[in-house]
Every structure is written in structure tokens, then in C-alpha cells.
């Protein structure tokens, strides 16, 4: 069910990313102060925004999971956090490179956006250990959702508080972007934001498809082996999807619970 229209989506993402990179390097003018180095802005900032939106989405999916008790919502939340963690590492690395290039240091504590992003990453780094430490799949899903909601609320609040604490050094991106950026910068920036969001969505759909397919495969294997032969599932941090084994068409319903 997540595999539908995945190929056109993937192709669109690929085209958008290519277009973004081509425009960023060949069409957008070089920055007056930072020159060529500023190009990393088109990678770093949209990635960071998409990462944080992914964490917030995971919190919303967790709310839906607690309300409906549908394991698919837990899986959505899990995959979103998983992907955003990967994106977040890319944000930290690209941010460090940019900081080294423009401020001369790999890390700057007086920079609230950097510090709050690190805090968010440190918090979410405990998500998988938390899941792994709870054996019962139902309780694991419930506790993970509680964590995802709390952490999802922490993301915006934390940014406000840490930003209050230090003098501004980071270029403020949201809010005054139209005032500070000339036209071509803006076009490429928004295009890059869209293509990074597309990239996130495509990867999310791929992982959802894969998780869903393996849950179906497990269900089919169980059916073939007979229920009494069912081996105890290995302890895992991955949510357990409850799917029927009735083939691809009818098995999209995970609401056995």
C-alpha cells in the first residue's frame, strides 16, 4: 500500500534535487561575503528544517497511535524519527563544515540554533534504546509514543529557549528571509526546501513499504508453518505491524488489535 506510485515520486525527487543543485551552483549568484562557501546553505538549512518537521510529524503520528491504537501509526512515527535522525547527522556535519568555513571553528557554543539542534539530536538518540529496552511489543509501542509526543513538543520549545539565551550569530533564516535574500537566492532556497522535503517523503515511503512487506512476509511464513510452530519473535526496537497474510491486495489492514 505504501509502494503505490513510489516510482514517479522517486523520479520527481531525483529531478527536483538535480534541478536544485544545478540552480544552486550555476544560476544563483555567489554570496558577497562568503562567496562559494555559501552554497552549502542550500543543503544545510532545508535539511535542518525538514529534519525538525519530521520529528514534529513523528509526535503527531504518536498522538494518532495513542488515540487509535493502530500499529501503523506507531510504525509511521518510528520511521519518521529514524529518518530524521539520519538527516540530523547530515545537518550537524554540513553545519560544522559551514561553521569552519565562515566562522573558523567547527563548533560555536554562542550559536543557539546549533546548540538546540544538538540537544534535539541527543534526546532523539535515546528513542531506539528506549524501544529496545522494552520487550512487550504493545507496551513498547505505547511508551515510544509517549516519548515521541514529549520530544516532539520539546523541539520547538527548546529552540525558543536556547535562542533566548545567546546573542544572534546565525543568519536568521525563517521570518526575515524575504527581507535578507535577493530574488535568486530565495527561489533556489525554496526549491531546495521542496526537494529536501520530497527526499524525506520518498525515503519515508520506501522504508514504510519495506517494513510493511516484511511484516506481510512474516505473516505468510507463519501461515505456512502453522501457528503452533511460531518461534518467539526476536527482541527488537522495530514496531510490530499486525498484518493479515491474505496477499498484497487485502492485507493492508493492520487493525487486528
Amino acid at each position: 500500500m505504501y509502494g503505490k506510485r513510489l516510482r514517479p515520486l522517486a523520479l520527481t525527487t531525483f529531478a527536483a534535487l538535480t534541478l536544485t543543485l544545478v540552480l544552486a551552483f550555476f544560476w544563483a549568484p555567489n554570496d558577497a561575503n562568503q562567496g562559494f562557501l555559501q552554497k552549502i546553505f542550500y543543503l544545510h538549512v532545508p535539511l535542518a528544517i525538514v529534519t525538525l518537521c519530521g520529528f514534529v510529524y513523528a509526535g503527531l503520528a504518536a498522538i494518532a497511535h495513542l488515540r487509535t491504537r493502530d500499529s501503523r501509526w506507531d510504525m509511521r512515527s518510528y520511521v519518521a524519527i529514524h529518518l530524521s535522525l539520519v538527516f540530523g547527522v547530515a545537518v550537524l556535519v554540513s553545519g560544522s563544515i559551514w561553521a569552519k568555513g565562515s566562522w573558523g571553528v567547527w563548533w560555536d557554543w554562542s550559536e543557539p540554533t546549533l546548540v538546540s539542534f544538538l540537544l534535539v539530536m541527543l534526546l532523539y538518540a535515546t528513542y531506539q534504546p528506549l524501544r529496545f529496552a522494552i520487550e512487550d511489543p504493545e507496551r513498547q509501542a505505547r511508551y515510544a509514543s509517549v516519548f515521541a509526543i514529549t520530544a516532539g513538543a520539546f523541539v520547538p520549545i527548546n529552540f525558543v529557549i536556547v535562542r533566548l539565551s545567546t546573542a544572534y550569530l546565525h543568519p536568521r533564516v525563517l521570518g526575515d528571509i524575504s527581507a535578507n535574500l535577493p530574488g535568486r537566492f530565495q527561489v533556489v532556497f525554496y526549491l531546495s526546501l521542496v526537494s529536501m522535503a520530497l527526499l524525506w517523503i520518498t525515503l519515508w515511503r520506501y522504508e514504510m513499504t519495506s517494513k510493511h512487506a516484511s511484516a506481510q512476509l512474516r505473516a505468510l511464513k507463519r501461515l505456512l508453518a502453522g501457528d503452533e510452530d511460531e518461534a518467539l519473535p526476536r527482541r527488537s526496537a522495530v514496531p510490530t505491524l499486525s498484518v493479515g497474510a491474505g496477499g498484497a491486495g487485502s492485507s493492508g489492514v493492520g487493525a487486528a488489535r
Binding site: 540537544l119 541527543l122 534526546l123 535515546t126 534504546p129 528506549l130 529496552a133 511508551y143 527548546n158 529557549i161
Partner: peptide, 27 residues
């Protein structure tokens, strides 16, 4: 409450709560 019924509660408790408490510490 979140950490107590996990297999490694003494580790998870501080790992989860310390990042959440950084704004408290900061202020």
C-alpha cells in the same frame, strides 16, 4: 515512569531526562 519498566532503567532515565532538563538548567 517511562524508564522504570525497561531493562536498562538506570541508564535510560538520565539519558532521556538530561536533554529535556537542559532548558531548566540553562534558565
Amino acid at each position: 515512569a517511562l524508564a522504570v519498566r525497561t531493562s536498562v532503567r538506570d541508564l535510560l532515565g538520565p539519558m532521556i531526562s538530561l536533554p529535556l532538563l537542559v532548558p531548566v538548567l540553562l534558565c
